[in-house]
Design a protein around this nucleic acid. Structure first.
Lengths: 192, 192
DNA sequence: GCTATAATTGAACAATTGTTCAAACTAGAA
DNA sequence: TTCTAGTTTGAACAATTGTTCAATTATAGC
């Protein structure tokens, strides 16, 4: 029976996310995906190609999450707040790393793996565009100052999320995290 | 002739910083330090112990930089601004990664290398204490609101730096980085 | 059933990894 | 010079790495 491709990519994403590209060994993947090396290579070509699939999957998933949040709240700014909160405030049961897979990949790999790093950077750009779109929506809704630069705000949000997610790997209380999150969003240029 | 220990640690720090713990191979170190494997092991014990030395060196260096900035400016808030600016705004000639070595280490290593990760976290705590001390100084100088929580501000500053340094790895213009940096510091609770 | 195509298996490979250690070298005291 | 304690050397090792491929098993059309 042929293996379930989507499920395999999901499992690979989880492992790569946690261990990184170099930290994940083919034998870890074999165990985690319950696939033999031949099958993995037949299906994905190489460790690097499978990793790129994982980056793509993660990026698409992230964008879907942003759109879901945007559709669930009348106020686009609150939608962004909830999106970030869901990522940053750890709910004890999930085992997902607090870290951003794309940012982690960019940090891990240098020029020896430039292609993978650029792949991850491209994912971050897509996410940033999505943020900008939601800010524009907030502007149209009248929740955000008309003069605000949405592209710049999207960059700013990326920085904030990267900071919070990196910091979240340390032992920080939920209160401190929520505190910083609230402070962050209260500094946005609200409509007059 | 015996090798120069401090210089070796400095070179090792640069390499580990750029390539990470897993990405740096013993043979890279041998080449970079111009030392044979036997000498490295005689001097440092193992790759892991040398890495810890590098983390210590980086942490001490960072704290010294903060103190230097603090001593060079009458306004402690401006001192912090200049410290962050020097780190985040890339001056073309230096080859230092924009990334924070400690944060990168925490991100790279999971529970399989918990000890090293905790070592890096301890370094981040020391730096955070140093930030808190400078904020307290700013308060004493009357540049910061007396009611401000300096420990909380230190955490906030860590988050901002982590965000900016991670984001700085992408292709961003100096203008955008400076813009975010200025915006960041302008949101501090200045004294009335 | 039979055959042909597709997918899976897992032993094996060459390359790379962190590390060791006997031998060679060095510098200073006698 | 001779002795000795401290260093450095680099070939070698066992373990681990990403990857391959001939053999095996499964699937589907007749």
């Amino acid at each position: 029976m042929k293996y379930d491709r989507v499920q395999a990519i999901e499992k690979a994403t989880g492992l790569f996310w946690k261990l990184g590209f170099q930290g994940t060994k083919m034998r870890d993947l074999q165990e985690h995906l319950d696939m033999r090396p031949g099958s993995i290579y037949a299906g994905f070509g190489s460790k690097e190609l499978l990793f790129k699939e994982a980056l793509n999957h993660y990026t698409e998933q992230s964008i879907q999450q942003i759109r879901l949040c945007a559709s669930q709240h009348d106020n686009a700014l609150i939608a962004l707040y909830e999106f970030v909160k869901a990522i940053v405030i750890v709910t004890g049961d999930t085992q997902k790393p607090t870290n951003c897979f794309l940012a982690k990949t960019v940090a891990e790999l240098d020029n020896n793996n430039a292609e993978i790093s650029l792949w991850a950077q491209s994912g971050l750009n897509k996410v940033e565009e999505e943020f900008a779109a939601v800010f524009t929506k907030a502007q149209a809704q009248g929740f955000l100052d008309q003069k605000a630069d949405c592209l710049r705000l999207a960059k700013w949000l990326q920085v904030q999320i990267m900071g919070l997610r990196t910091y979240g790997q340390l032992q920080v209380s939920k209160e401190d995290m929520t505190d910083m999150l609230d402070h962050m969003f209260s500094s946005l240029p609200k409509a007059a």
